[in-house]
Amino acid sequence: MNIIPSKIYQVDSNRRVLNKPTELQQLEVLEKRGGLASEAKRKLWIHRTGFQGEQTFYDFMFRMAKSHWRILHRTWLNIKGRVECDFIVITRVGIYFFEIKNYNGNLVYEYNQQTVNYRTISGDIMGQFKNMQERTIDMCRQMNYSGGVFHQLVYINPYYQATLPHEWLKSLLHYNQLTDYIEQMIREEATLLPANFSPDEAVDSIESLFACTEPYPPNVLSPEELKQLKHGIACSHCGSFHTICTRYKLICVHCRQNEPKERAALRLIGDYSVLTPFNPLQAADIVKIAGESFRRDYINKILRRYYQLAKVEKTGQYINPSQNFEHTYPHLSFKLKNSRNPLQ
C-alpha cells in the first residue's frame, strides 16, 4: 500500500476552539439538512462525543501550555503502517502523546476487553494504545531524538472513572489529574536538558518523515444525494430554514434573527464544501442547494472575494477548503447594513 505524505495539523495557539474533523462537520450538515439516515445518527453521536472530549483536553492545554510548545491534533503517521495520535505535545525536553477517551460511564478494562457501565463495547483500547506507544517510540528512535517520550491515556469525562490493569495505571490520567500533569511537564522542561530537536524542528521532522493521509476520508455526496437535502440557508441562531433574503440581510421568519447576507452566503458555501470536500467550488453547483436564497452571480461574487482560483486558466473553479465557514474564516466580522425588515 502506498502511503502519500501529508501536511500535519498544528493547532493555532491563538485559537481556543479546535477545528472539527471534516467527517464530523459533514454529518452535522447532513443532520441539519435532513439527510442523515438512522444508522448514521449513532455515528454522529460517537464523533461528536469524541470531539467534545478532545476539545475539553485542549482547553487545559490552551490555558497552561507554554507559547513555544507545539501541539498537533489528530495526526496520522506512517510508522510500519498508519497510526493515529489524538494529540502530540512537543516541549523543549520531550514529546508527549495523548490518547483521549470520552465515554459516558465508568470504564473497566480486563482480558483485552472493555465495558462501560457493564456494557461491552467493541475494540481493544489498550491494545490500540500499546500499538501507538510502540510505533511512536520507534519513530523517535528513527529520528535520533534525544528527549523524553511519554504516553498517556486520558479519561476526560469528569463524572466517571476508568479502571485498568495494574501495568497500565501509570499511563492513565483522569480529568482531575490533568492540571497536575501539565504542571509536571512545565517543571520537567525547567530542570531537564533540552533535546537535540527544538519543538519546531521536531514538528518538521515528523511531518517530512512520517506524516501520511487519513485512511478514512469523508464521503463526497453525489448530485442525486444533494437533491434530496433541504435547500436554502438555515438561520444561524435557531436553525430554521424559513428565512428571507433581502439586499443586505438574511432574516429568520421563525426567530427574527438578522444576519449579514455576505456571512450567510459564506455559511452556505461552507455547507457545500463539507458535503463535497474534494470537488472544486463552482457557483453553478452551490446555487443548487441555495434554494431561492441566492442568485448565481452573487455566489460568484463571494467566491471571487474570499476563495482562491483552482487554476488561473480555469475561471469559475475555486479551491475547496473542505471546512465550514466557522473554521475557514473564523476571523471575519460583518457589519449589518441598514435595510428595511419586511417582517416589521
Rank of each mutant, 00 (worst) to 15 (best):
A190F: 05
W168R: 08
V203T: 04
L164P: 09
L164C: 06
C212V: 02
T276R: 13
Q282C: 11
T246H: 01
E183R: 14
L164R: 06
N219W: 00
Q177C: 12
N157I: 06
E214V: 02
A195V: 06
E207V: 07
A195C: 05
N258G: 00
Y181K: 12
I286W: 10
T191V: 13
A202G: 08
V253E: 12
F210R: 06
T191K: 10
I251L: 15
S208G: 05
I182T: 03
C212T: 15
R256M: 11
S273I: 04
L172P: 03
Q228H: 08
T213A: 13
N279R: 11
Q184E: 13
E167Y: 12
L266F: 03
G291A: 01
L250T: 10
I186L: 06
Y248L: 03
M185T: 04
I286G: 11
P194H: 06
S240M: 03
N219C: 02
E225W: 01
Y160S: 10
T276K: 05
C212I: 06
K261Y: 10
F197P: 08
Q257Y: 14
G239E: 07
E214L: 01
A283S: 14
I269R: 03
E292Q: 14
N157T: 13
H242M: 00
R187S: 07
Q228I: 01
D285G: 06
N219S: 14
A264L: 03
D180R: 08
Q177R: 05
I251D: 06
H237P: 02
I233K: 05
V220S: 15
P165T: 09
I156E: 13
K249W: 15
L229D: 04
D180W: 13
S198Q: 00
A211C: 05
K288S: 12
D285S: 13
S208W: 01
I286K: 11
R256P: 01
S208L: 06
I206G: 03
Y159K: 15
P215R: 09
L268P: 11
Y181N: 05
P217K: 04
L275N: 08
G232P: 05
C238I: 03
Q184K: 14
Y160I: 10
C252V: 07
R247G: 14
F197R: 04
G232K: 09
N279F: 02
R263A: 13
N258H: 15
V253P: 00
I182K: 00
C245A: 15
F197K: 12
L172N: 03
S273R: 06
I206H: 01
S222K: 10
E259M: 12
P280Q: 08
K288H: 07
W168N: 13
Q257D: 01
Q257L: 05
P218V: 07
S240Y: 04
K230Q: 14
T191S: 06
Y181Q: 13
K288C: 07
I182Y: 08
G291P: 07
I182G: 03
